[in-house]
Simulated scan of single mutants.
Amino acid sequence: MYLMESTEEGRRLLAQEGASGYVRSVLVATGLQPGARALDAGCGPGGISETMAELVGPAGAVVGLDLNEERLREARARNAHRPWVRFAQADVRRTGLPDASVDYVWSQYVFEYLPDRPVALAELMRVTRPGGRVVVSDIDGLGFQNWPFPEHLRVGTQRIVDALATRGFDLHVGRKLFSEFRSAGLQDVRVHLLPYYLVAGAADERLMKDWEIRFAALEPVAAPAFGGHAPYQEHCREFLRMLADPDGFKYAVTLVTEGTRP
């Protein structure tokens, strides 16, 4: 279940993809090549699909899958001038694609929402040809790497994480994927650690907006853990003030796990 949906989610995702700065190099480093048949599993508004399409070129093909029809409309509009890219509404656990039909699979910020990750990983392996690459990019510990980090803010942040866990969300999914890839039978499994954000001083407007949208979208799930909307909103305001502190240091990481289908 995707917990972040809002009217601003498409813009947030595109801004997040654009701010990362590493996607193109990681796609290449993990095996995406010109002419490849590639899958973007959980494509959102199609920003990464666009980069994948540029890398594979017209001799290749990109399929983007997402459950949200609004995100798919955005993705189709963004990639309308590339006939070698197509989008479909599907769950990453049930793609509907033929066996061994792609050379390369990318999935970013999706596995954190899946309590049945082995099912999703098995499906991505099924659609990948032998010798092809499966790559999953996800967070690990988002929101906890701050200093100074007042104890009441740490406790409040943990309340949010615990509330999300009841909906199947795993904040620490990134560190678990290496062993899960190996257990699934993937070979040559490697992990890349990359910055999600790295801020020495005050966070910029983009990151502040990212957190504002995140907090608003999560309020229905998280507010009961604080005893109501008012104390939850106060926690969010204090967290944002911490991000804006020019004397503070904040960072978060993305872990990219890749493996070869035997």
Results as ranks from 00 to 15, higher is better:
E74A: 13
Y104Q: 07
Y22N: 05
D40I: 14
S20W: 14
L65C: 10
G42M: 14
R82G: 11
G60L: 07
W84A: 07
A80Q: 08
G35H: 12
V102G: 13
V105L: 03
M52D: 10
L114Y: 12
T30R: 09
E69Y: 08
R76S: 05
S49G: 14
W106Q: 11
R78S: 13
A61L: 03
A41G: 07
G44T: 09
E112D: 11
D91W: 11
T95V: 09
V63N: 08
A41I: 02
S20E: 12
V28G: 12
N79M: 00
R71F: 06
R93N: 10
T30S: 01
W84V: 03
P98W: 15
V85L: 02
G57P: 02
S101I: 07
Q89S: 02
C43E: 10
L55E: 09
V62M: 02
G21E: 01
R86C: 00
C43S: 11
E69T: 06
S49R: 02
L72I: 01
T51W: 15
A29N: 04
D40K: 14
S107H: 05
R82M: 01
L114F: 14
E54N: 08
A29Q: 13
R82S: 00
Y113D: 06
D40N: 15
R76L: 01
V85M: 08
D91V: 06
L114C: 11
L67Y: 05
Q33R: 15
A100Q: 01
V92I: 10
P98G: 11
Y109W: 15
Q89P: 03
C43Y: 12
P34F: 04
N68M: 05
T51C: 02
R73H: 08
A29G: 09
Y109L: 15
